[in-house]
Design a protein around this nucleic acid. Structure first.
Lengths: 250, 250
DNA sequence: TGCATATTCAATGGATAACTTGATTTCAAG
DNA sequence: CTTGAAATCAAGTTATCCATTGAATATGCA
């Protein structure tokens, strides 16, 4: 189909002096477009972002993304066609994962570009926005210094696949019941998957309602992978399944 | 239309504990997808890559990309909708340009990701491939040292919008006639727009046929912008149209 | 004012993509 | 061998996209 497009295009106005390597060169843009196509659906982007937290089965991904299993399966296959994700069968379920840490950092760069180009991105970031780099850096410094109670409000499996050093795993649903665990006078910082994830925001709302001084860190472990802050299984999201990689287990 | 999709998606299986910030969060992926969509067509990617060489009118872009003017215009408008390019009228023609240097470097990263993920990219790179980083670095070192005759075989306007320091502008079509200008014993290095551009390859073929020792540098000025090697108007492709920017006219 | 150029607009037909539904494969467990 | 779960496949409908065509809208120039 792409070949047909190329042929059609080549007939148009070939003003180029040398028509030799043209279709070969154009083929490269077709390849690039394969990646672009993979990134052209909100659902696929959401699946990709979820996979940045670690490998997951189709069913879990579908649930988290809010789509049917069949639909998620189809999207995942498209992502696999674009070589952005890989999959292998574990028992009776298929576990998808990113094709490499480069995919995760590329996603972060796409996000950064979007925030730079599309002004509406930050604005409708649910009202709350720590977006200012200085405020975020200050927050991170406090986190790094251990001056705050750090809360990971993602599902437990995602915590286990990699989390910030010193964080406490308290999935959002459990937070109300586990409030007594948190020292009362201390500032609480909650994080989740990243800027597009609302879990930490709701945790902060909940904490403030309960009288805590709470802050929202709008980055997730995948975004802080280059930092010295991530620990657990997958700072850069799991690349090689079995090969070596004897990371110190927290 | 995206709002409608969201509504439909929200009805599906809302297993999420808190359904509060969901549609707001999903809106972010819609925004990301706008960028992805812009990158999902080979023609748009080609136009973007051409714009990395400098601002151009619709007509020129259409000709270089090998599409009709109307078609190019529509694609350019989609790019503008995705905020990747900007345009303003100069006389009776509309000059498009990248929305910022971030777009150019993002393109380079997309290309790098494609080369990392899609093995077929390098293979069919017209046979010739200097792709090995060491070889390329050595070549660049010789170029930087002025040990070679450096040839810019792009159209003259693109040379004027920015080129490698010390390069000679010899558009491919003029090369046969201007061979006498080139010292005979010296190694010649030809470059053009970047890895997907065939001009330099054909120049090398031509030069070798004429008895020269010739090499192909598979990077263009936009890719070497961070380097100290680019001179002329636009190392990072022109950002602000009228504001300041008193370009020295070559 | 009138003509030519550059670009965009609007409409068409053909191809692609998205989501749903129901059937099918594959594997583990009994 | 049967049952059930997980994932994919296949078919069908709807929506969207894409390239082409011809008209319309500027803008500069005579």
């Amino acid at each position: 189909m792409q070949a047909r497009q190329n042929a059609a295009r080549r007939d148009a106005p070939p003003v180029d002096p040398a028509g030799a390597g043209r279709e070969a060169a154009l083929a490269h843009y077709d390849e690039l477009a394969r990646l672009g196509k993979a990134l052209s659906s909100p659902i696929r982007l959401r699946l990709l972002d979820l996979l940045r937290q670690g490998p997951r089965s189709v069913e879990v991904l579908a649930e988290r993304a809010g789509v049917t299993v069949a639909n998620a399966s189809q999207h995942l296959q498209q992502l696999r066609g674009g070589r952005l994700v890989e999959a292998d069968k574990r028992g009776q379920q298929v576990v998808y994962r990113l094709a490499g840490s480069a995919v995760s950092s590329f996603f972060a760069e796409l996000r950064a570009l979007a925030e730079a180009l599309l002004p509406e991105m930050d604005r409708l970031k649910h009202g709350l926005l720590v977006a200012e780099p200085e405020a975020r850096a200050a927050l991170l410094a406090r986190v790094r210094a251990g001056a705050v109670t750090l809360l990971d409000v993602r599902p437990a499996e995602e915590f286990e696949a990699g989390h910030l050093r010193g964080a406490l795993s308290v999935p959002l649903a459990e937070l109300p019941a586990r409030l007594p665990e948190l020292p009362k006078g201390r500032e609480v910082v909650a994080y989740c998957r990243g800027p597009f994830c609302h879990l930490a925001l709701e945790a902060v709302r909940l904490l403030e309602g309960a009288g805590y001084r709470a802050q929202h860190l709008d980055l997730g472990p995948p975004d802080l992978g280059a930092d010295d802050l991530v620990t657990g299984a997958a700072a850069p999201p799991a690349r090689s399944p079995a090969r070596a990689a004897p990371r110190r287990k927290r």
